[in-house]
């Protein structure tokens, strides 16, 4: 009974729109939707199609069907791909195991209003505000052959340690720079979430004799479920898509192969295949899971 009442109310409201109102509504939705579809969804769909073709990227009539050839080439004949996968896995483990927990820990402590918490919050968040182009320059000053760290290590420019050029450790150098941003970002998100957890709840649990770790694990963490999901999703997505900072430091040459830059190194080369498109699709497929998890958390109430 209730639902029919709502239904008829809806129908009534829809019929009540005047012609001008209907035009307004169509324009309100139609114009933004047109740009969004044209520049986001249509290109995304086209990239998926292109990943099954050979194309030098010049004339549209010369696109040739390739089937799975690009993917086969990537999986079986491109060692750089597997190096990239390995680096992305390291990236994910580092973010999930080190950077994100540090961000959460900082948020937890700063939220307790320890002495100097305002300054700390600003200090940790500052790197997030900077453009990655600036971040790249800042870290180059520290790590270049005649930079601060080499100076501190007592090495002059001739026998300087190459932080970006040493392929055994450069992934960790890049991860340090990436964490410099990531930790502040996670801290801020978590801090906002923590504001909603009642302080009395925590003190009560401490009075009951719980240690701080137990309080966090049993009281605070479960109360933060939506934020936790978002933090996990961000950690995974950022690790898979890592691109900017590597691109800033190495350009499109392969100083450090990761999935996000392989896409561009192959497009810029204008090879006769659409391998770049196939890389983009692989990247997309890997991030679908976290995207869906994110949408499910945020839209739970809308769908119900």
């Amino acid at each position: 009974m209730n639902s029919t009442a709502v239904g008829s109310k809806k129908a009534h409201r829809r019929r009540a729109f005047s012609k001008a109102d209907r035009t307004t509504l169509i324009a309100f939705v139609g114009i933004p939707l047109f740009f969004h579809l044209l520049l986001v969804w249509v290109p995304a769909f086209l990239t998926i199609l292109l990943s099954f073709t050979y194309w030098s990227g010049i004339s549209i009539s010369r696109i040739k069907w390739a089937g799975l050839a690009n993917y086969k080439n990537i999986f079986f004949d491109t060692p750089a791909f597997w190096e990239a996968v390995q680096n992305n896995v390291i990236w994910l483990l580092w973010f999930a195991g080190i950077a994100t927990p540090i961000g959460i820990l900082l948020a937890y402590q700063i939220d307790r209003q320890i002495r100097g918490h305002k300054f700390y919050e600003t200090a940790y968040y500052l790197p997030v505000v900077l453009s990655l182009a600036v971040t790249g320059i800042i870290w180059d000053f520290l790590l270049r052959p005649d930079g601060f760290v080499n100076g501190l290590m007592g090495r002059d420019i001739d026998n300087a340690f190459s932080f970006f050029g040493n392929y055994d450790i450069n992934i960790y150098v890049i991860l340090t720079i990436a964490s410099w941003r990531h930790i502040g970002y996670i801290m801020l998100l978590y801090l906002a979430g923590l504001k909603s957890v009642d302080l009395a709840l925590r003190e009560a649990s401490a009075l009951d004799g719980a240690t701080e770790w137990q309080t966090f694990k049993k009281v605070v963490f479960p109360a933060m479920k939506p934020v936790n999901v978002i933090v996990i999703v961000i950690t995974i997505i950022e690790s898979l898509r890592a691109f900017d900072i590597v691109y800033i430091i190495y350009g499109s040459r392969g100083g450090l192969p990761i999935l996000g830059t392989l896409v561009f190194s192959n497009i810029a080369g204008e090879g006769a295949s659409m391998k770049g498109a196939a890389y983009a699709v692989i990247l997309f497929l890997l991030s679908i899971g976290p995207i869906i998890a994110y949408l499910r958390t945020t839209f739970k109430s809308d769908v119900q």
Binding site: H36, L39, V40, W41, V42, P43, A44, L46, T47, L50, G57, I237, R241, F243, G260, V263, F264, I267, M274, G276, A277, Y279, A280, V281, L283, F284, S287, I291, Y294, L295, T298, F299
Partner: peptide, 14 residues
């Protein structure tokens, strides 16, 4: 919302 989450790499060529 989903469109906003797509990787830039996926749309860049077209």
């Amino acid at each position: 919302t989903a469109g906003n989450l797509l990787p830039a790499q996926l749309v860049f060529i077209p």
